[in-house]
Simulated scan of single mutants.
Amino acid sequence: MTRSRLTALLATCVVALLLPLGTAGGAQAAGAVKISKIHYNSPGKDDRSNASLNGEWVRITNSTTKAVSLKGWTLTDAQKHTYTFGTFTLGSGKSVTVRTGSGKNTASNVYQNRRAYVWNNDKDTATLRKANGTKVHSCSYNNPKVEFKNC
């Protein structure tokens, strides 16, 4: 093997070893868009009032260094109740709360406009997917003794 080929091979090996450490092009090291919290048992009486419905929610956080378009992304539970984001951009370092009931969408809260609860009080799984169906993140819980789960 020639000296130049050996040098090139060595350089390739060094880069391959460094990539998992995030020193060159490691997108995951910069952060992720993920489910950060599920508040699955709304406080007070489960009376299906809009206030009670909005007391259950899922927070999605963008810890990347860039804004991310969530257009067409979906949030589902284990029974396949699905919320699909319309035109929505989640800023870098920002969170959006997906509430079950009705309200006016803002940069920090969006609403599913449902008249029934989505998240079971004992166990469930929230799954976030890109518009193309690729799973981004999921978070499960199975404790009826608390009202929320940090993911």
Rank of each mutant, 00 (worst) to 15 (best):
M1T: 15
T2G: 15
R3I: 15
S4V: 12
S4R: 13
S4L: 14
S4K: 15
R5I: 10
A8S: 14
T12C: 12
C13R: 03
V14F: 12
V15Y: 08
A16Y: 06
L19A: 15
L19E: 13
L21E: 02
T23C: 07
T23F: 15
A24V: 13
G26A: 13
G26H: 02
A27W: 14
A27Y: 07
Q28A: 12
Q28K: 10
Q28W: 15
A29N: 10
A29M: 11
K34N: 04
S36K: 01
S36T: 08
S36A: 03
I38A: 07
I38Q: 00
I38D: 09
I38M: 05
H39L: 05
Y40C: 02
S42N: 15
S42R: 05
P43D: 09
P43V: 10
K45I: 12
K45N: 14
K45A: 13
K45M: 10
R48N: 14
S49T: 08
N50P: 07
A51Q: 09
A51C: 04
L53Q: 03
N54P: 04
E56K: 07
W57Y: 15
W57G: 05
I60Y: 01
N62M: 13
N62L: 11
S63I: 14
S63F: 02
T64G: 09
T64I: 05
K66M: 11
V68K: 06
L70R: 00
L70D: 00
K71L: 06
G72F: 08
G72R: 08
T76D: 09
D77H: 00
A78N: 03
A78F: 04
A78E: 06
Q79K: 13
Q79T: 12
H81A: 14
H81M: 10
G86C: 03
G86L: 11
T87N: 11
T87L: 01
F88A: 05
T89L: 02
L90Q: 01
L90S: 03
G91R: 06
G91A: 11
S92V: 01
S92H: 04
G93T: 03
K94I: 09
K94A: 06
S95C: 05
T100I: 12
S102D: 13
K104L: 03
T106V: 08
N109S: 13
N109E: 13
Y111K: 09
N113G: 02
R114M: 06
R114F: 10
R115H: 14
A116S: 15
Y117I: 08
V118P: 01
W119H: 01
W119T: 07
N120Y: 04
N121C: 00
D124W: 00
D124C: 10
A126F: 03
A126W: 11
R129G: 05
R129C: 03
G133Q: 10
G133T: 05
G133C: 03
G133R: 01
T134D: 10
T134K: 15
T134G: 13
V136K: 05
V136W: 00
V136L: 12
S138I: 01
S138D: 14
S138T: 12
C139F: 01
S140W: 12
S140H: 10
Y141T: 00
Y141R: 08
Y141P: 01
N143K: 09
P144M: 10
P144L: 06
K145R: 09
K145M: 04
K145N: 15
E147T: 14
E147C: 05
N150S: 11
N150M: 06
N150F: 07
